[in-house]
Design a protein around this nucleic acid. Structure first.
Lengths: 240, 240
DNA sequence: CGCTGAATTGACGGACATCAAGATGTGTGG
DNA sequence: CCACACATCTTGATGTCCGTCAATTCAGCG
């Protein structure tokens, strides 16, 4: 139940130090940042807040915690999840580098959030943004943009969950291909179980569909959960 | 393809006139308004905009239209939907009296929207709200509240779609029971097909589960799509 | 009272889950 | 650097929930 692993720096943007050990994703650096929120490295959000590191599976916040911060992924990935009545786990979203998360409708978090792999997060107090601060109107517009973008993300996730198993997996791969780290290549930071819980499927079904896609020559699986998209067009055809 | 049926009044809040024929839901009046957005009749949104009437299945906006208005349901109900690749229809949300809808992340609508039954809508220009208008900060806070509430609604819909068929139907009934029009009684303005498309099921499955719930003595179906909840506790037990 | 679309009910099949085993891959200690 | 151990992933056999197809009943309306 340990929380913050290592507070790096406060109120100043900077690269993480060598002290932050990151066993996975050694080639993530030096790649242009992009995210679903649309900003290519940097609104003023990148100039405030505190950098914090989390190792794999560490909790960033948990259900019912006060929702008084928003977060931005600097590197790594997080999953936002909750347990269902029947013991299954539901993952509402993954956030990768550049993505902002943690904004809530009410005063408390309705999901838990954990690091999928060694991850660096920028933590920003909501008060700093919403209070009649020096950031003023631009902060409010920023929050609104985050909220509407999150709204759209959740809507897309909903419409995904009524499709067939292969459509879900294909759509997921296309989403992840935004975070390319090489020519048509990306790394899935999360396990099959994570993917299954996000797509409302089982690990076996996800695995079988990966195999089918590889047999069709559409993708290639390489070590360290890397995926090479060999036929993006075919992949897009299979998407709804 | 007809759009606006009858513009009632502009810029002044008022009850609709007798000229607006409303074949269904004759007992909706005189009931305290409430909605998921939390306002019990009336923010300043109720004092601006234009009232418009739509008859059953009429289009309020369609995919790719400019998203330059937001809407509030005065009476009736709407569905927000899109067609999937395989020809099936996906319904992202229903909005009933008091609910606000139509806010988008981008400049254009990503869904279509239709009246589920004869419906009166308040249409409010986004410019009126966001422009440096006299409403100023309170308007911005209002929009942010709408966005985060919509965000949460979409998240709840997502997590619904990974559950079993009966859990989905039960959850739907509990959602609708917010709009009670009598003791433990509400009307479903939408068809079984609408419900099925919202829950990612078929009409047959929805129908069978309704029958099971009635056979168990948990609900009662009466004419005009009215539902009486006879054992709310049991219903809540069945929900995730 | 008959007509038409909506809703219900039944029989059957298929997509995905479940259960179980085997393969691969990643981290650890000698 | 290699060998072992454990977790993750893959593959196969079987089961089940829900979809599909089809017939019947019901409700709303002229």
């Amino acid at each position: 139940m340990e929380r913050a692993i290592n507070v790096l720096r406060s109120s100043m943007p900077s690269r993480h130090t060598a002290s932050g050990q990151r066993p996975h994703s050694p080639i993530n650096d030096g790649v242009p940042k992009q995210s679903r929120t649309g900003d290519l490295e940097g609104t003023f959000l990148d100039s405030i807040g505190v950098l914090v590191e989390f190792s794999s599976s560490n909790e960033i916040y948990t259900f019912d915690d006060p929702a008084d911060h928003i977060y931005k992924v600097v590197s790594g990935a997080v999953r936002v999840c909750k347990l269902l009545d029947d013991g299954r786990r539901y993952i509402g979203a993954f956030y990768l580098r550049g993505d902002v998360f943690g904004l809530e409708s009410g005063p408390r978090h309705t999901y838990s959030c954990e690091a999928v792999c060694p991850t660096t997060i920028r933590m920003i107090s909501r008060n700093v943004l919403t209070g009649s601060s020096s950031y003023g109107r631009s902060a409010e517009l920023e929050i609104l943009a985050i909220a509407t973008s999150e709204m759209q993300r959740a809507q897309m996730h909903s419409s995904l969950l009524v499709k067939t198993a292969s459509e879900r997996v294909v759509n997921f791969l296309l989403q992840m291909s935004i975070y390319n780290i090489g020519p048509a290549t990306f790394q899935l930071p999360m396990s099959r179980q994570d993917i299954a819980d996000y797509l409302g499927l089982t690990i076996e079904t996800v695995s079988r569909i990966f195999t089918q896609l590889e047999d069709s020559g559409i993708i290639l699986r390489t070590p360290l959960r890397h995926i090479v998209v060999r036929d993006k067009h075919a992949l897009e055809q299979m998407d709804g």
